[in-house]
Deep mutational scan, measured.
Amino acid sequence: MMAYMNPGPHYSVNALALSGPSVDLMHQAVPYPSAPRKQRRERTTFTRSQLEELEALFAKTQYPDVYAREEVALKINLPESRVQVWFKNRRAKCRQQRQQQKQQQQPPGGQAKARPAKRKAGTSPRPSTDVCPDPLGISDSYSPPLPGPSGSPTTAVATVSIWSPASESPLPEAQRAGLVASGPSLTSAPYAMTYAPASAFCSSPSAYGSPSSYFSGLDPYLSPMVPQLGGPALSPLSGPSVGPSLAQSPTSLSGQSYGAYSPVDSLEFKDPTGTWKFTYNPMDPLDYKDQSAWKFQIL
Rank of each mutant, 00 (worst) to 15 (best):
L54D: 13
Q28G: 08
A174S: 08
M225K: 03
P125L: 08
A68W: 12
F46Q: 14
F46L: 13
G110M: 02
A192N: 01
G151P: 12
Y258S: 06
P64T: 12
V30Y: 10
T155P: 03
K88N: 14
Y208T: 05
K295S: 03
R43F: 13
K289L: 12
P170F: 15
F87W: 14
D265L: 15
K270N: 01
P64H: 14
P285Q: 06
S143A: 04
P263C: 11
W294T: 00
T251N: 03
E70Q: 05
G8W: 09
S204V: 09
P172F: 13
P227N: 01
S212W: 12
P232R: 05
P64M: 14
K118Y: 02
N77K: 10
G231V: 11
L51I: 09
P133D: 07
I298F: 02
P135Y: 06
L186C: 01
A156C: 10
A158G: 01
S266W: 15
Y142D: 10
Y11Q: 00
D24P: 15
P153D: 00
P263T: 05
P224C: 12
A181F: 15
T251M: 10
Y4W: 11
A192W: 14
S19K: 11
S167Y: 13
G148A: 07
I76Y: 07
S212G: 10
Q228E: 02
R48N: 09
Y221W: 06
E52W: 13
Y142V: 07
D134L: 08
T273K: 09
S161V: 15
V72P: 14
L186R: 07
A181Y: 12
I76R: 11
K295N: 00
I76C: 04
V226C: 00
Q297V: 13
A35E: 07
G122N: 09
S141Q: 10
G137W: 11
G183V: 05
P147A: 04
F58L: 12
Y191M: 06
V72H: 13
L136D: 11
M26R: 07
S161Y: 12
P272C: 12
S262D: 04
L54H: 12
F201Q: 00
V85G: 14
S81W: 11
G230S: 02
E80K: 11
S150T: 05
A56N: 05
T251G: 05
A192M: 10
A3I: 15
A189E: 06
V13K: 01
I76G: 14
A3P: 00
L18Q: 00
E168V: 10
V157N: 01
M283E: 00
G109D: 10
A117M: 06
G20Q: 07
S241K: 12
P211K: 14
P153L: 13
Y261K: 09
D287M: 15
Q175D: 02
T159Q: 02
V131Y: 08
L299W: 06
S143P: 03
A29R: 06
P153W: 15
Q256H: 05
F215H: 00
P272Q: 02
S223D: 05
S292W: 15
S188A: 08
W163P: 00
V180G: 01
R69K: 09
C94A: 09
L237Q: 03
P220M: 15
D290G: 13
K102V: 04
Q28T: 03
G20F: 12
C202S: 03
C132D: 07
S167D: 04
